[in-house]
Amino acid sequence: MTDQLADSAEKLFTAHAGKAVLGAAEQGVFPQPLWDAVVEAGFTAALLPEEAGGFGATVAEAMGLLRISAAYAAPVPLGETMLAGWLLARAGLAVPEGALSIAPVRTKDRLTLTRDGDGWTLTGTATRIPWARDAAAIAVLAEGPDGPAVALLPKGSFTVAHDRNTAHEPRDTITVEATLPAGAVALANTTAAQLRAAGAAIRTVQMAGALSRVLSITIGYVQTRVQFGRPIGKFQAIQQNMAILAGQSAAALAAADNATDALAGTLSPLLVGSAKARAGEAASIGAGLAHQAHGAIGFTQEYDLHYVTKRLWSWRDEFGNEAEWNALVGRAALEAGPDGLWPLLTAA
């Protein structure tokens, strides 16, 4: 992405995603000024093709914006709105304004479309839906009579039971029994596996952003915290751990770039899956090292570190944890066999 775009994102989140906003969001206050600024800047449309309302940004630029938002732990549904727009645009449906989300996100949850006169009825329950309570509409990948279909479900046409992740981001249960006009539904052009892969790509990019922030917070801390008469970063034990943390951050960024390539291309399950798993592992190792370096202060509500580490601890599990994706990747490797394994990797 261009430096200019990155700078404008950094400025926006610095101005609007400060400590008070993050703290209030944990208490359930939606950060409307932040969200308005994100929408105003056009970030929510960054992943959309121009004909669907996008501004011609590349997928890499859109993911760059998302990565920066995650580095600031911005408590807004930017990734989800991008993902919903992606799903709607692939189905040829218009993308509405406002905060959006997608459903279902858990593999066992099902929403079903049945014909109802000229229109449709959508029924079912979906759990762990990100930001459902704040969404103006939810893009649903439903099972229809003719195969997977996308339905645009506006606010008010479903009930929401609050739930959350470890970072207090909304992960709600929605229950739907809604009548929808014909124009709100279209054949999906997207399978459940593809939506899951796209969601995994989004979370991979976010993890890379959050982990880069974990690194910078922690390096800053060990350079200033003095014990035994010197900054603790002068001790080799700390230096070695910081090098490991930097390595994990770099690996997560590489994984995010692989996931971005997949999202821009054919959504290779191998590329997305390996990326999600690798970034998830990096998140676990990196968050652990960061808290260890910080000692007690990093464990407090007052200090910023937890806003990013708590997100990492949920994002690594959302849209498939390391075990799920590694199993898929490993299965592909086993099926490729001894002579097909390397060609599989180079074609990913």
């Binding site: 770099a250 690996a251 590489a254 994984a255 770039d257 692989n258 191998l270 590329l271 899956g273 390996s274 990326a275 798993a277 690798r278 592992e281 390391e322 075990a323 994706w325 590694n326 199993a327 898929l328 990747v329 490993g330 299965r331 592909a332 490797a333 086993l334 099926e335 066999g337 990797l345 990913a348």
Partner: peptide, 24 residues
């Protein structure tokens, strides 16, 4: 190809690491 799940996860993890390293 009929390897147990445990092996698939382990092989997948190694593969995931290789793909990230290859990019770096």
């Amino acid at each position: 190809p009929a390897a147990p799940e445990r092996a698939a996860v382990a092989i997948g993890r190694i593969t995931s690491h290789i793909l990230a390293l290859r990019r770096l």
